[in-house]
Amino acid sequence: MKMADGVTMLRRNRPGTKAADFCRWPDQPFEEMESTLVVQQYIQQQICHDPMNVTQILTPPESQDEGVWKYEHLRQFCLELNGLAVRLQAECHPEACTQMTATEQWIFLCAAHKTPKECPAIDYTRHTLDGAACLLNSNKYFPSRVSIKDSSVAKLGSVCRRVYRIFSHAYFHHRAIFDEFENTTYLCRRFTSFVIKVGCADFTLNSSCFRPDRAIHGGSEMIPVKDNEDESCFLVTKHSPWRGKYKRIFSIGTAGVTTYNPTNMEITNRWPYSDFMGALPGPNANHGQVSLA
């Protein structure tokens, strides 16, 4: 490295730097970083170091504020997801993927609009990333990158949830792209671990989320399995005309839908798909309300 010989080494990508040398400077210990963007610097440095070492990347430095740690990681996920979006633009045409789906059972509505819309998958992807960029850069919710209000940290959950659907769509509908992207970035694996490890509280408590423990085995959580294995689970609030609202884990399996009681994991109901007439997004579909008939 050319610049390493100087008395003070400056970590810069000067004009003329070759792509291979971009950001290839010796690691700077976290304690020595001084700017207000230390956490981003640290995360990017770790990723640059070894994108495969997910554990290392997700381990916060000592006494790191948790909110900022989550926030900066989510920024980094959205940043890198641009790479997936670029690849999807080439293949995920609105004519083919008219709706944002992962496993055909759910249509995800795009929350970027005033009233959530059934955007085609590619628009969903772009709008979700654009919306996340606006939210995560919002001066209102995230005025500082050094400390973050608790109320704003809560916002991160919804971003996680939507971002995850982009991975899901790519996985189920554009597998080649997903694999190619995943093999260079390890992004989905990192994201899955992130959600489990950092435990976006929101992410597990809110409705219509991937249940994290199903997503543990790096990427494999989305592989369709035989018989009725639970494919994806959601903690939902059931609106029953008889019993009011109550929490259930809602699981979409390959052969049917199962609901569990979250307190004791007992199966409360199970319906084969043949029993359904359809699944319709409810009036508050952006909050994950779905009517099953």
Binding site: L10, R11, R12, N13, W25, Q28, E34, S35, T36, L37, Q40, Q41
Partner: peptide, 10 residues
């Protein structure tokens, strides 16, 4: 005008 903050040395 001081306009921006540093990231690494940039």
């Amino acid at each position: 005008i001081t306009a921006h903050r540093k990231k690494f040395d940039e």
